[in-house]
Simulated scan of single mutants.
Amino acid sequence: MAKANKTRVITGRNTRLSYFHGWEPASINGGPERYSTSVLIPKDDKETIDAINKAIDAAIEEGIAKFGGKKPNKAAIKLPLRDGDAEREDEAYKGHYFLNANSKTAPQIVDKSINPILDRDEVYSGCYARVSLNFYAFNSNGNKGVAVGLGNIQKIRDGESLGGRSTAAEDFQTETDDDFLN
Rank of each mutant, 00 (worst) to 15 (best):
F172W: 06
T37K: 00
N182S: 13
Y136K: 10
G12V: 06
Q173F: 09
G164F: 08
W23R: 12
Y35N: 03
S27W: 06
K6D: 12
K3V: 13
K6S: 04
N141M: 11
L133D: 10
E91S: 14
S113M: 13
A137T: 06
G164R: 07
N73Q: 09
T167E: 05
V39L: 12
G68E: 11
R130G: 01
I156S: 06
G164W: 06
I60E: 02
T11C: 10
A51Q: 10
G159V: 08
E33Y: 04
G151E: 05
T167F: 02
S113Q: 15
D177F: 02
K144M: 12
D50V: 09
Q154F: 05
P42D: 08
E170M: 03
G163N: 15
K144Q: 15
E24V: 08
Y124P: 02
I41L: 06
G163D: 15
T174Q: 04
G63C: 04
V146W: 01
R82F: 07
K43L: 02
K6T: 08
P116V: 04
T48L: 10
S18K: 08
D119V: 11
K74D: 02
Y93G: 04
P80G: 03
G69A: 04
E170H: 02
R157W: 10
G163C: 04
A2Q: 14
A168E: 07
D177G: 00
G126T: 10
D178S: 12
S18L: 01
V9D: 00
A55C: 11
A4D: 11
G84S: 08
D177Y: 04
P25M: 06
G69V: 02
Y124T: 04
S140M: 13
L79P: 01
S103H: 04
D121W: 00
N102Y: 10
G163K: 08
S166A: 12
T167P: 02
L162A: 12
R120K: 15
I114F: 15
I41C: 01
L181V: 13
A26I: 03
N141S: 13
N134K: 11
D44M: 09
L150I: 06
G142C: 11
Y128C: 00
G149F: 09
P42C: 06
Y35W: 05
S36M: 12
P72I: 00
G145E: 07
I153A: 01
R8W: 07
H96S: 08
V110S: 10
Y124L: 10
A147K: 11
V123Y: 03
N182A: 13
